[in-house]
Design a protein around this nucleic acid. Structure first.
Length: 476
RNA sequence: CGAGGCGUAGCGCAGCUGGUAGCGCGUCGCGUUCGGGACGCGAAGGUCGUGGGUUCAAAUCCCGUCGCCUCGACCA
């Protein structure tokens, strides 16, 4: 018991010190290490495996929407950025620039991409000649660099991995539809694969992507009530198409300017998983993206037949496509239980002489920490059902918690009290920047997303007629 | 960049009324164990962030400097 307590103390208390808990989980479960350059992280195999699963799930969704993968250069001439005025202004403070190469100062500095609208826009202008070339939909998986002042593993790092999709269309309607379709794809993915419920909708002007006409977001609530922007989809209108000369001949033979979109999610999603599902024992991973879905822990491994039974079970589960690990190490079972729980493995099977004799296996769920006995002779179906149950349970639990933490407010005091209690606060807003700024100043909460389809009489700040209802929250 | 805090073994920490470095966990070896971090014995591992000063003597006192963390500011 003393040991048990000690283990818990290794990871900070989740309720008392959430930031420290998060850092502990990320480092001690071997997801990442800090990199040598401030704000960078080394993603370890266990952490990267989550990313690979995210990639697999997203790629299949992109492909079904006609999006193809491609790759564009890391270095972008600085002059490309200056072509779209708002874009360069928005990104300039956080762009890292290469000034020297080959032992000489470069005639033109090169930006390390913070995002690739400029280079992809340049290429699209060459690739697109005719309306027959549209729509064009490309995506790239890559790293980007943004020199942020403060950083936190996964949530905000100087360098991070992401996917950025870029599309070009013949009309505003089609581009807007694409923007919304990708937002819905992200939402479906977040809920079904990551078990993270999200609020989706438009961002305010203040929070809009530099150079976009409109930015749409999905916002997820972390366990401490703060919001995390988990993905964005931008409608770029003709802003980039004009700046980069993306033109095509229409079916009527006239030269037209295309409409473009861009959308992306990043390794920040891994941070979202940790902060949404994690508990005092460490990680809790949704089965769809868990590197290890099921771990088999042999009990009394020296007794005859135990190792063989475990290996047989492993082979059976593996053949059924379940990501299964057999923990053959000579640690004690209790040690293994804690270790794999900390690492968030959704289902653990304990298999010992008693179970083998009875033709059963003891299965422990990570999400609700309950053990159930299942028959060994139908292990695949039993485990698959259990995994599906965990996946479903995680989403429901997260959704319940989030819904319980959405409140309404009519004035500044209400917003302040709401966000301090760890809530998303819905409040009326007149639409002016001054009121939005004032809320941030006095409550540290920002406008996360428009609450579509809801209405309020008055603005919570100035008392004038409310044009919109906004979800306010403190954010990562 | 502002305000606080912290740098001592891989990790977490103690030592700070100056006297030449210790604990827990982890690691390695041997043995006994194995249904919730099991136990015994043995071993390896540290120029105390760094530079200077005071002193016979500095992890400890003084000054500088670097790095990290939290909260602000900043953040498609």
């Amino acid at each position: 018991m003393a040991k048990e307590t000690q283990f818990v103390e290794q990871i900070a208390n989740i309720d008392e010190d959430f930031p420290q808990w998060y850092t502990d989980v990320v480092l001690k479960t071997k997801l990442v290490d800090y990199g040598p350059v401030k704000g960078t992280m080394v993603i370890r195999p266990y952490g990267y495996a989550i990313w690979e699963n995210i990639q697999r799930e997203l790629d299949s969704r992109f492909k079904s929407r006609g999006v193809e993968n491609a790759y564009f250069p890391l270095l972008i001439p600085m002059s490309y950025f200056t072509k779209e005025a708002e874009h360069v202004e928005g990104f300039a403070p956080e762009v890292a620039v290469v000034t020297h190469a080959g032992g000489e100062e470069l005639t033109e500095p090169l930006a390390i991409r913070p995002t690739s609208e400029t280079i992809i826009g340049t290429m699209m202008s060459k690739w697109i000649q005719s309306y027959r070339d549209l729509p064009m939909k490309v995506n790239q998986w890559c790293n980007v660099m943004r020199w942020e002042k403060t950083t936190r593993p996964f949530l905000r790092t100087s360098e991070f991995l992401w996917q950025e999709g870029h599309t070009a269309h013949v009309s505003a309607e089609e581009a807007e539809a694409e923007t919304m379709a990708m937002l819905r794809t992200y939402q479906e993915f977040a809920e079904n694969c990551l078990a993270i419920p999200v609020l989706t909708g438009r961002k305010t002007e203040k929070e809009r992507f530099a150079g976009a006409v409109a930015t749409y977001t999905m916002e997820a609530m972390m366990r401490d009530g703060k919001s995390l922007q988990a993905g964005t989809s931008h409608y770029l209108g003709q802003n980039f198409a004009k700046a980069f000369d993306i033109k095509y001949l229409s079916s009527e033979g006239s030269l037209q300017t295309a409409y473009t979109t861009s959308w992306g999610v990043s390794t920040r999603l891994i941070g979202a998983i940790i902060m949404t599902h994690g508990d005092e024992r460490g990680l809790v991973l949704p089965p769809v993206v868990a590197p290890v879905q099921c771990v088999i822990v042999p009990i009394a491994a020296r007794k005859p037949g135990v190792v063989e039974a475990c290996e047989g079970l492993q082979a059976q589960l593996k053949a059924a496509g379940i990501r299964v690990t057999l923990d053959n190490t000579d640690n004690s079972p209790g040690w293994k239980f804690n270790e794999w729980e900390m690492k968030g493995v959704p289902v653990r099977i304990e298999l010992g002489p008693r179970d083998i004799e009875a033709g059963k296996m003891l299965c422990a769920r990570r999400d609700i920490l309950e053990k159930t006995e299942l028959p060994l002779d139908n292990a695949v179906d039993g485990i698959k059902a259990l995994l599906a149950d965990v996946q479903k349970g995680l989403l429901e639990k997260a959704r319940r918690r989030r819904d319980e933490h959405i409140v309404y407010a009519d004035d500044m005091a209400g917003i302040l009290a709401g966000v301090e209690a760890g809530n998303f606060v819905k409040a009326g807003w007149c639409g002016c920047r001054a009121c939005e700024d004032k809320i941030k100043e006095e409550t540290a909460a920002t406008a996360r997303v428009f609450a579509e389809g809801e209405s309020k009489e008055t603005c919570a700040v100035c008392g004038k007629k409310a044009e919109h209802v906004i979800v306010f929250a403190r954010a990562y």
